[in-house]
Design a protein around this nucleic acid. Sequence first.
DNA 1: TATATTTAAGACAGTGTAGTCTTAATTTGG
DNA 2: CCAAATTAAGACTACACTGTCTTAAATATA
Lengths: 148, 148
Amino acid sequence: MILSKTCDYGLRAALYIATHEREHFVSIRRISEKLQISFHFLTKILQILTEKGIMISFRGPNGGVKLARKAEEITLLDIILAIDGPGLFTDCALGLEKCWEGHPCPLHQEWKQIRTDLKNIFQSKTLADLAFRIKSDTFRISDLAVTT
Amino acid sequence: MILSKTCDYGLRAALYIATHEREHFVSIRRISEKLQISFHFLTKILQILTEKGIMISFRGPNGGVKLARKAEEITLLDIILAIDGPGLFTDCALGLEKCWEGHPCPLHQEWKQIRTDLKNIFQSKTLADLAFRIKSDTFRISDLAVTT
DNA sequence: TATATTTAAGACAGTGTAGTCTTAATTTGG
DNA sequence: CCAAATTAAGACTACACTGTCTTAAATATA
Ligand code: SF4
Ligand code: SF4
């Protein structure tokens, strides 16, 4: 898996939130049910996103989490960096510790290109972009056929 | 990490072997020292490659492992599939279990392309290709500066 | 104020990957 | 045949990632 399971859950939750009103808090319980993710586990993941300033949380009745910025201003990369860190975009394909340019591993060129492509994709897609696709009902963020 | 550590070790060991004579067996002890990989762990990894028919092993003095086919005929993909399996080239970017084309996750297009690019790179590079780069002494397969 | 709702925090368990160690089997060479 | 070298096999340990559970803190509303 290219992203950790934790990160996949975080992305899917963020997309669920982005497909709903920005003004309301969405309860984690609800997200966990809709996306079929363990409630407690998801709580911890969203706490990370809250600490990192990507989400805002609120306790008590009608509480939950919501996006800290507009969905147009949050990229997938923001969430991936918050949860998995930058490793995917910096690590060596062969697991070498030090990547000296000028004396790199033999996959240098190809891998560097792939890493760049990957980063560009995640950086160029905002939550709003994907939320739009999801709302069109052609795309889904759960193994269930329908997610409301 | 895009490949498991086990797979990185397997690839690096295969590249080390490919940079040496095809006719001789190379001892696992030597590979582990040159590449700074735990001997016993590497033994198990190379056993996998032997089981899968990518390597041939031989016990006793002057024993070791060697490539079962010519280095020109073994691709990186062969080794990755043997160790990590096909998941990297088939799994969903968001971790969904089922990937219905026609109702996929919202990263469908982009991710499918990246997966294809990745597979093409690994499939188009043979051990011989990379061994050539390594022998030119510009590239390395260890954190050490020199690997003989 | 009391109760219900909801996130926060942290302890804890399960699982899989990574790594270590011991013993067995095979082969060579003296 | 015997000793040394080397892979095979499997038990075992260590650690990180995933997931569960319990208790605390904050908030709304009746
Ligand atoms: S250049 Fe080579 S050594 Fe450096 S990160 Fe890329 S693949 Fe790894
Ligand atoms: S199309 Fe979408 S759902 Fe299917 S594997 Fe690709 S990313 Fe995953």
